[in-house]
Amino acid sequence: MSEATVIYDERLTVVQNASCDGEDLLLSPEDLTRVSGWELTPEGVCREGLCVPVPPGQERFNLSRLARLLDQPVVASSEHRVWFFGERPQGLASRLASLTAPDFTLPDLDGRLFSLSQFRGRKVFLVTWASW
């Protein structure tokens, strides 16, 4: 068991006693909730009203296995002990297909944060570029 860095829902958490097996990340119930918001309950592992049945009596919960069950992409670096849990393609696709422009918050050069949603009420021409 050792330290692991977990990025879940864009939030980075460092846990002290994770165990791993390849891309599988096993966490204590407390760390599971701290990292991902999922909670072990008698109904299974639950978050935001959604419950997934799991065998009872697990001391450590395999978050990577849950992600695979939910079609959520998981990528890990076992060397650097970092796990990245990405967004489900279904979530990305349905949000885009709704035609509501996905919101984001990003800094400018001076570190001031801007969100797309603060420009509601005006037309917006959003354009990406790069120095590469």
Partner: peptide, 19 residues
């Protein structure tokens, strides 16, 4: 978020926040 593959890529968004 917008499933873009290159730059420059533009998206037009109206007053109601719709693409």
């Amino acid at each position: 978020l917008y499933h873009m593959v290159n730059v420059p890529t533009g998206v037009w968004i109206d007053e109601a926040g719709r693409i």
